[in-house]
Simulated scan of single mutants.
Amino acid sequence: MSTKIEEILERLKSLTLLEASEVFSDFLEETFGVDASISVASTSSSSVNSGAKVEEALVEEKTEFDVIINEVPASKRITVIKVVRSLTSLGLKEAKDLIESVPKPIFEAVTKEKAEEVKKLLEDAGASIVVK
């Protein structure tokens, strides 16, 4: 990179966003004869609107959770299979297949309380669990 470009970049780093937008608006108006305030205003209002939507989405609390078995140590497989069978309506073969094909969801779209309860039971049996 040339020293000229490096100097420009260093100066840009020292500007606030508002200062930079004013400088560029003035530059565009003077150099190209366009009204840059319209595009800056519409861009900033759409940014504010999209920012508000993102904030609203973050405020909403998640109500459905998935319980996923990540890992089961070989020494704990039988215990975990027994717990899986007691929590679900799976037979011995299905529970064994589930344990052997981890990571795998054991429950999907359950309440937070149910997810925490299942997580505790499976972790006590020796499984590594993730609640998403």
Rank of each mutant, 00 (worst) to 15 (best):
T88Q: 01
V102D: 02
T88L: 05
K76M: 13
I106N: 08
A74W: 03
D66G: 11
N70Y: 06
V83I: 15
V84T: 07
E108Q: 11
R77A: 11
K76C: 00
I81R: 04
N70F: 00
A109E: 09
P73L: 11
V83G: 13
L90E: 06
E94A: 13
R77L: 11
K76Y: 02
F107R: 11
P73T: 05
V67E: 04
R85H: 12
N70A: 02
K112Y: 04
N70W: 04
K93G: 00
K104E: 11
V80I: 12
F65L: 12
E71L: 15
S101T: 14
D66L: 08
P105T: 05
T88K: 04
D97S: 07
K112M: 10
K62L: 11
V67N: 05
E64L: 15
K93Q: 06
R85S: 04
K76Q: 14
T111C: 01
A74C: 01
K96R: 01
E71D: 14
V67W: 03
T111E: 06
I68V: 15
E113C: 01
I99P: 04
T79R: 14
K96Q: 03
P105C: 06
K93C: 01
L87E: 10
T79D: 15
E113L: 03
I81L: 08
L92R: 14
K112T: 00
I69G: 09
E113T: 14
I99M: 01
I68M: 08
A74D: 15
V110A: 05
F65I: 02
